[in-house]
């Protein structure tokens, strides 16, 4: 009998999924692009995506490089074409972007992004759940192991971003 249970447990462990990685993935970008279509006034067409990064932060710089590579000269997802614009965190206040994508690992250094989003009344999206929780970015997306979208209500309100009721039913609000 013990052998049977050991077999069951073994199969269970074998079938369990691998832990998710933290780097920005192509699926994260797809999810982020779809989110834009659920704003109160849907964002469509060509969108300048300001990829906010810290050149001095290795993780952030790696994210930026990966994003620029994935987006190329423009990535079309549904009704949106994302055109990347690298934005060093130090100059985010003057960035010519329609939406900000905050790279990971900035920690407290992400605060200027929140200020820029609030000043320009534009959306900030990130895969960095900590930055979202801290209110530095309105929307956090995660695609692995399952899609999860989190909206920081205070950050969203500060940047003038609102979503449809149906969308809000399906996401996590903090």
């Amino acid at each position: 009998m013990q052998g049977f249970f050991a077999l069951v447990v073994g199969v269970w462990v074998l079938l369990a999924p691998a832990a998710a990685g933290a780097a920005v993935t192509a699926t994260d970008i797809q999810v982020a692009a779809r989110v834009l279509g659920f704003t109160a006034t849907p964002i469509t067409g060509t969108v300048k995506l300001g990829v906010v990064y810290d050149p001095a932060n290795a993780a952030s710089a790696a994210d930026e490089a990966a994003l620029i590579s994935m987006l190329g000269s423009g990535l079309t997802v549904g009704a949106v074409t994302l055109v990347p614009v690298p934005v060093p965190i130090g100059s985010v206040g003057s960035a010519a972007a329609d939406v900000l994508f905050l790279t990971g690992g900035l920690g407290a250094g992400a605060a200027p992004a929140a200020a820029a989003a609030a000043a320009k009344k534009i959306m900030c999206i990130t895969t960095d759940a900590a930055a979202n929780a801290a209110g530095d970015c309105a929307v956090a997306v995660q695609s692995d192991p399952a899609v999860k979208i989190t909206v920081n209500k205070a950050a969203a309100a500060a940047s003038g971003v609102s979503f449809g009721a149906a969308f809000m039913m399906m996401i996590t609000e903090i």
Partner: peptide, 19 residues
């Protein structure tokens, strides 16, 4: 009024499973 109604297709594409 603000926002929109249920778009099954877009939600399914975003979440990767039927809504």
């Amino acid at each position: 009024a603000h926002a929109q109604q249920v778009d099954y297709g877009a939600l399914e594409q975003m979440f990767g499973q039927p809504v």
